[in-house]
Design a binder for these strands. Structure first.
Length: 383
DNA sequence: AGGACCGGGATCTGCCATATTT
DNA sequence: AAATATGGCAGATCCCGGTCCT
């Protein structure tokens, strides 16, 4: 096994000499020291045979406007390759409507892209086009995340992924959303994706669910990020929810594929930290455990809110006399930014809005609707 | 008509560590 | 040993408006 590369190098060394291939290749392929020693010293370049960088490659990249320094730092190996396809890749992408700047940015951020053959790119592109209707969409995803497109060269795996996701019953629309939102999903190995689906199915079964596939599908289509999370992360979050909410199995199952689905992919530390601070804050305010549970159940996204943000939001609401009870009843108001909430509270106070009497739902509305409401409230009462 | 209820949209990559291949 | 492939991680909301309900 280990001898194979050496032999290959030896052969290509001879090829290079006898057929007069370019000098670069000679220098690059004679790297193994032992083999080089079989050649007389005078045949060797005077410099030690450390892989030099391909200079025409550097020139090309510079010409293309690639941030060579950044690229080099990212994937130095690419720069020592004897053959790269930067021209082909650039031409290909240009043909798909990517501008020079985008191409340069893509290569700067994921240099390995230039090791892909044009043929391979063509195939991969077609596979993506099964899901996207225009080239422009693909270009924009690529520009956003070059790594998602280029990290793996396994087109067969991509094909299998698409087939697998379809087999779960995900619609083409779901696939489109999935590839747009979390493109990395498609460069996961199918095995990894299958493991997650299997894991979700197991969770469902453990909780007494009768339709594990439907559950997995529901979770994926409602939380497009789930397949790019680790099983460990999702499992830990489910365990945390399980132990802190103490729901009946069937309720937990419904929660997980309903509104609770959004918090499954939160980082574990984050859930823990945010849960603790919410718990602490509410306990301090005299809330019961049941209130805390109710809040999380009706508005799971509360766990997304960091400690200080949550504190500010609650404080500015409480400061104008709104009670924790009211917030627990209408938690959606926490959805809005601190700035938005404080601004609206001021406006409402100006017109003498009575939160006790009229409730706080007014805070949960679009800017347009809110302004219309304020205008009505501040208009002189007419008969 | 007006408010409540509810779900969706934007966006979430870029880096590091380890495994695998060459 | 070097390069590539793959898995995993951290970070932590905000806003809009359709539709239903009264």
């Amino acid at each position: 096994m280990a001898a194979v590369p050496g032999v290959r190098a030896f052969l290509s060394l001879h090829r290079s000499v006898s057929f007069g291939l370019i000098q670069v290749q000679l220098r690059l392929t004679c790297h193994p020291v032992k083999l080089c020693s079989t050649v007389t010293e005078s045949d060797m370049p005077p410099k030690p045979p450390v892989n030099p960088e391909n200079e025409s490659l550097l020139d090309n990249l510079n010409l293309m406007g690639v941030d060579v320094k950044k690229a080099h730092q990212r994937q130095p190996g690419v720069f020592r390759k004897s053959f790269t396809n930067e021209q082909g890749v650039a031409q290909f992408l240009q043909g798909k409507g990517a501008c020079r700047k985008v191409i340069a940015s893509i290569i700067s951020r994921y240099p390995r892209a230039i090791t892909r053959s044009t043929d391979h790119l063509e195939k991969r592109w077609q596979l993506w086009r099964n899901i996207f209707t225009t080239d422009a969409e693909i270009v924009s995803i690529m520009d956003r995340s070059p790594e998602s497109f280029f990290r793996t060269s396994d087109n067969e795996n991509l094909e299998k992924n698409i087939a697998f996701l379809i087999s779960l019953g995900l619609s083409t629309k779901d696939l489109h959303r999935l590839l747009t939102t979390a493109p990395r999903t498609f460069s996961n190995s199918v095995e990894l994706n299958k493991q997650m689906v299997e894991f979700l199915g197991d969770v469902c079964t453990e909780l007494g669910g009768k339709n594990p596939e439907q559950f997995a599908k529901a979770v994926i289509s409602r939380n497009l990020y789930i397949l790019i999370r680790s099983i460990k992360r999702v499992r830990t979050n489910i365990d945390m929810l399980k132990s802190s909410l103490k729901l009946r199995d069937s309720d937990l199952l419904a929660f997980l594929q309903g509104s609770g689905v959004d918090i499954l992919d939160l980082s574990n530390e984050c859930v823990k930290k945010n849960f603790n601070s919410l718990n602490q804050k509410m306990t301090l305010l005299g809330c019961q455990k049941s209130d805390i549970k109710k809040l999380i159940m009706t508005y799971p996204m509360v766990l997304y809110i960091g400690t200080s943000t949550l504190s500010s939001k609650l404080d500015c609401l409480l400061n104008v006399g709104i009670t924790m009870d009211q917030i627990v009843e209408k938690p959606k108001v926490l959805d809005y930014s601190v700035q938005n909430i404080t601004g609206r509270l001021q406006e409402l106070q100006k017109v003498g809005y009575n939160f006790q009497k009229n409730g706080i739902n007014i805070l949960d509305s679009s800017r347009k609707r809110f302004d219309a409401k304020i205008e009505k409230l501040s208009a002189p009462p007419e008969e």
